[in-house]
């Protein structure tokens, strides 16, 4: 029942989580991550290989990932063609669609949480904020996501939302792939809302039922939407189909926003150019060694989360392990197994 595969010769990344720092035993975020990742198996979701007890906490063992989408976008030396953007977006949406089909909303979708494997596959990581959704009477916190990727309903303080928040963030990533800079970057919630409404127009009551009843509703000067083409003038990278999909993903009213699964069926993915095959996708020049999901926080001033128990990457994570480390891990692994068996027999 509890068959644990022994990993041999495979590079892994370890996320160490200290236990009992806040006086509440094993971290809830860590448990959530373990619980959800054990159930989610998809080529575009990072694999949790194992969980070990470690001296002062628990260690989550992930597959090793080379870099992340954030670096791809930031690296000026990388040229992203229309086909590359399409390939990345398809992997983003495929990962999310898988989560949503299993009633999990990730709630922390941003470029640095999409890790890039050496095979070119893009994988969603860091499920510390993810939650199962669908129970009608469980209020959620709206303090999720990095601020720039927060959907308008979250900025308006909604405590009852669904997978649409992830799709909004994916839409922001899509725009970021096209623009090569964050779309709605601002220092405050109101600043982000202002940027959103400048680009997409203010929401009208007719389109968004219950808009004025939102907990933190703020009236903005009515603005008409700007044509998306004026914001994304490059037709080669962003053809009309791309902008049509983008407009559906960043639809202001959550009820009318396209779902991740429907977005994957959009015309954009069926017309030329075909998405670039994974192995031919451009990679950032200095493929900085990065430990999967271990860092991922507080890199950008505006992108920081607030009031959420996230980013508890305790202890220095080993960066760039060589084969010696893997041998060590394997040995360690066997010892752990033996210890566990002893405990079971006792």
């Amino acid at each position: 029942m509890y068959a644990l595969p022994l990993q041999t010769g495979e590079l892994v990344a370890i996320k160490k989580i200290r236990v009992g720092e806040k006086g509440e035993g094993v971290n809830v975020t860590a448990l959530r991550e373990v619980k959800l990742l054990r159930e989610l198996h998809h080529p575009n979701i990072v694999r949790l290989l194992d969980v070990w007890p470690s001296r002062r906490g628990i260690a989550l063992v992930f597959e090793y990932m080379e870099t992340d989408l954030e670096r791809v976008i930031r690296d000026r030396a990388v040229l992203l063609t229309g086909a590359d953007v399409k390939a990345y977006l398809r992997m983003v949406l495929a990962g999310l669609a898988h989560c949503h089909a299993r009633w999990v909303v990730h709630r922390d979708v941003k470029p640095d949480n999409f890790l890039l494997a050496s095979s070119g596959a893009l994988k969603l990581a860091d499920f510390g904020l993810a939650r199962p959704y669908g129970s009608p009477d469980r209020p959620f916190t709206h303090q999720v996501f990095a601020r720039w990727y927060r959907a308008p309903e979250l900025l308006y303080g909604s405590t009852c939302y669904g997978p649409g928040v992830d799709v909004w963030a994916a839409g922001c990533i899509f725009a970021e792939l096209l623009l090569r800079r964050p779309w709605f970057s601002a220092e405050s919630d109101v600043g982000v809302l202002n940027k959103i409404f400048t680009a997409l127009g203010t929401p009208r009551d007719a389109n968004w039922g219950g808009l004025r009843a939102m907990p933190a509703f703020v009236e903005f000067q009515p603005t008409p939407p700007a044509p998306l083409r004026s914001l994304f003038p490059n037709v080669a990278v962003a053809p009309d189909d791309a902008l049509d999909l983008l407009s559906r993903m960043v639809c202001l009213a959550p009820a009318q926003r396209i779902s991740a699964a429907d977005a994957l069926r959009h015309r954009y993915f069926r017309v030329d150019p075909a998405p670039t095959p994974q192995e031919r996708l451009p990679k950032p020049g200095r493929a900085g060694v990065r430990v999967a999901a271990a860092a991922a926080s507080a890199k950008r001033p505006g992108g920081e989360r607030e009031a959420t128990p996230a980013a508890e990457a305790g202890g220095p994570a080993p960066a760039g392990m060589d084969s010696g480390d893997v041998r060590f891990l394997k040995k360690r692994r066997l010892q752990m197994d033996a210890a566990l068996d002893d405990a079971a027999d006792a």
């Binding site: 006086g23 373990v34 054990r38 159930e39 969980v51």
Partner: peptide, 21 residues
């Protein structure tokens, strides 16, 4: 009691091998 509770919590998690879904 808290210390014992946290200890037991981890013992249970290890026994389940973190298979908690």
């Amino acid at each position: 009691a808290r210390e014992r509770l946290f200890l037991a919590e981890r013992a249970v998690l290890y026994a389940l091998r973190f298979d908690v879904a």
